[in-house]
């Protein structure tokens, strides 16, 4: 279980994250929803060690991760599929997948085959440069790449960003499938509707704080969430 306690992060001169606490239980899908600039991305980037926290605690199965390097955190089993996908554009699809498993030293073939099963489109594109893929294919590659290091927890930052609704539904189906196969998911989303439907548990972030939490279904029914994030 990943447990965040009293996390404060200053980012770009402002208090981006103020004293937040939440939990990501094993095998669940947990989502952070909220508007732009609420501090969702900063939270994920802090967990993986790309941004340094001011104070607080990030605890994975009893081990403190705050202040550790990204390399260590990834090797402990947390991985991030970053916002905006961040492909390695001139590398082939296959090379992108291999880079995802950079910290592993064992045989990768089985996992590469597994990714091709999850994302058949990647198999037909394996020799293509990642930069030439469509947005949806790139997002699938980003998820596949993150899965290549056998994470316990996969964090996804805005996987639906800039994608057509049909592709977004596909992505969410894949997220559920990955979760059923045993990977815990921490999801950042602006598309609150999709995220809440998929999530076991959800937290609402506003200007750096967590203002509300509940199961996905509870929040979907909540009138203030409906008004603020679902546009109903």
């Amino acid at each position: 279980m990943l447990k965040i306690t009293d996390l404060c992060v200053n980012y770009g001169g402002i208090e981006a994250v103020r004293n937040i606490s939440f939990e990501v239980p094993d095998g669940k899908i947990v989502t952070l929803i909220g508007a732009n600039g609420a501090g969702k991305s900063t939270t994920l980037r802090t967990i993986i060690g790309l941004v340094k926290a001011k104070e607080g605690s990030i605890n994975l199965d009893g081990e403190e991760l705050l202040g550790r390097s990204t390399t260590v955190i990834v090797s402990k089993g947390i991985t991030l599929s970053p916002e905006g996908r961040h492909m390695f554009p001139d590398m082939t699809v296959l090379e992108n997948l291999k880079i995802g498993a950079y910290l592993r030293t064992d045989d990768l073939n089985e996992d590469i085959e597994r990714m091709y099963e999850l994302f058949p489109i990647l198999k037909s594109r394996k020799w293509q440069a990642a930069g030439t893929l469509s947005g949806g294919e790139q997002q699938m590659l980003a998820v596949a790449r993150a899965l290549m290091c056998h994470p316990k927890i996969l964090m996804m930052d805005e996987p639906s960003l800039g994608l057509a609704p049909k592709i977004v539904r596909q992505i969410f189906e894949i997220i559920k499938k990955i979760n059923e196969q045993g990977t815990t998911i921490l999801l950042n989303e602006q598309n609150a509707n999709m995220a809440l439907q998929a999530a076991d548990y959800a937290y609402v972030m506003e200007t750096g704080r967590i203002t509300m939490s509940g199961t996905g279904k509870e929040l979907l029914r909540d009138s203030s969430v409906k008004k603020a994030y679902l546009g109903l």
């Binding site: 390399t71 991985t79 961040h86 390695f88 554009p89 001139d90 880079i99 950079y102």
Partner: peptide, 23 residues
Amino acid sequence: SSYGRAFTAIREDEVAAEAMGIN
């Protein structure tokens, strides 16, 4: 080797490279 891939990954996208656990 995998080091070579890491070199190229850094050239292509430092943020993503770091998120993959490349120091």
